[in-house]
């Protein structure tokens, strides 16, 4: 075990996979010599050479499209889109090509690619450095969408994603890159070195996809969340004194339905928390699933705490970001029913 930040854990995952599998290649904007604007690929080009880890033109469609071609050849590309806010030019390649290739060719070709994208807000990133576009991927049949919340899961999930033969959208909450964040922006930063989940195994291991984790066991209500909101929900539980069972989905879609259903059937109450905007967000699908599978166990309406249906603002960051006060208020409402 070594203390690692999420950045170091992600880099370690890529290092492990570059070492284990000659077909793994890593590229993206500023990913090569410079080591990434977030340092996630630092040192990898020096260690594995420019034909394995390299810089790419500023062209998200080109990065993803070329990766699909490499996947069709038999490589296992791990490509980076600098911010999730900038994946849109690659959406055609993701939806029309990567997601459909195995199906439309009846398995003749496939796209075993991983697309890493730093996502999420809470960093004064404004409109185009804060978005959480996961619902635009979970709606697409044929891709997997994954989001870790801590260094240990980040490494294990990234290795599992790279090894997976389906295209994986790997969303990295950049607010969690250096330390856990519970939404209390006025308090001092906490480092991963002070958190047990910052202890990361050195070598190869995986965290299986489609496996949710009970992040905090509880009896009063079930919180379904992922990414930064896992820590926000934990803070809300402590501050309200409500014994919330917090589930970190980890794999958004396909997901681990059994863990959710077992928890909600136990608690009878459910709050869904995400940073992304509300309407047609992934929370709507989670709400529908809980309603379908747990209707007779529910003792209160399912609540959603999400970002507002507005573009992500700059100055109004903390009025937008669903912090522990908003999440805690939802806990109380659900418990009053």
């Amino acid at each position: 075990m070594t203390a690692m930040t999420m950045i170091q854990a992600l880099r370690s995952a890529m290092d492990v996979m570059l070492e284990r599998d000659d077909n793994v290649v890593i590229y993206g904007q500023d990913v090569g010599y410079f080591g990434g604007v977030f340092r996630c690929t630092e040192g990898l080009q020096a260690k594995y050479g420019r034909s394995r880890v390299f810089d790419a033109p500023i062209s998200e469609g080109g990065i993803v499209g070329s990766a699909i071609g490499m996947g069709a050849y038999g490589l296992r590309p791990v490509v980076e889109v600098q911010f999730a806010d900038y994946f849109y030019p690659a959406y055609d390649q993701i939806v029309s090509e990567a997601a459909r290739l195995r199906f439309r060719s009846a398995g003749d070709f496939s796209a075993p690619i991983t697309i890493r994208m730093p996502c999420g807000g809470g960093i004064y990133g404004g409109q185009t450095h804060s978005q959480s576009p996961e619902a635009l991927f979970t709606h697409v049949c044929g891709v997997r969408t994954v989001m870790p919340s801590n260094p240990r899961d980040a490494k294990g999930l990234l290795i599992a994603s790279i090894e997976n033969d389906d295209p994986v959208i790997f969303l990295e909450p950049k607010r969690l890159y250096n330390g856990p964040f519970d939404g209390h922006h006025d308090r001092p930063l906490i480092s991963w070195s002070a958190h047990p989940l910052g202890e990361v195994p050195e070598g190869y291991y995986t965290v299986p996809l489609e496996s949710a984790k009970v992040f905090r066991p509880g009896a009063d209500l079930t919180v379904i969340s992922y990414g930064t909101m896992v820590f926000v929900s934990e803070a809300a539980a402590q501050e309200t004194g409500i014994d919330a069972e917090i589930i970190d989905l980890r794999s958004l879609w396909p997901l681990d339905l059994e863990t959710l259903v077992a928890s909600v059937r136990k608690t009878g109450r459910c709050v869904i928390v995400h940073e992304a905007t509300r309407t047609s967000g992934f929370g709507a699908e989670l709400t529908a699933l809980v309603q379908e599978h747990c209707f007779h166990h529910l003792e209160a309406p399912i609540e959603r705490v999400t970002g507002w249906d507005t573009p992500y603002p700059h100055a109004q960051e903390w009025a937008y970001f669903p912090g522990p006060a908003r999440v805690g208020a939802a806990f109380r409402r659900v418990m009053e029913n």
């Binding site: 290649v25 034909s51 394995r52 469609g61 080109g62 499209g65 070329s66 990766a67 699909i68 071609g69 490499m70 996947g71 069709a72 050849y73 038999g74 490589l75 590309p77 055609d92 390649q93 029309s96 090509e97 459909r100 290739l101 439309r104 060719s105 003749d108 070709f109």
Partner: peptide, 23 residues
């Protein structure tokens, strides 16, 4: 390669395939 209804998508994929062969 598998023909897609979406125009031009395969043009950059061809380049990626060629890059893979070179890698």
């Amino acid at each position: 390669f598998s023909v897609s209804g979406n125009l031009a998508t395969q043009f950059i994929q061809a380049v990626g395939w060629g890059m893979a062969s070179a890698i």
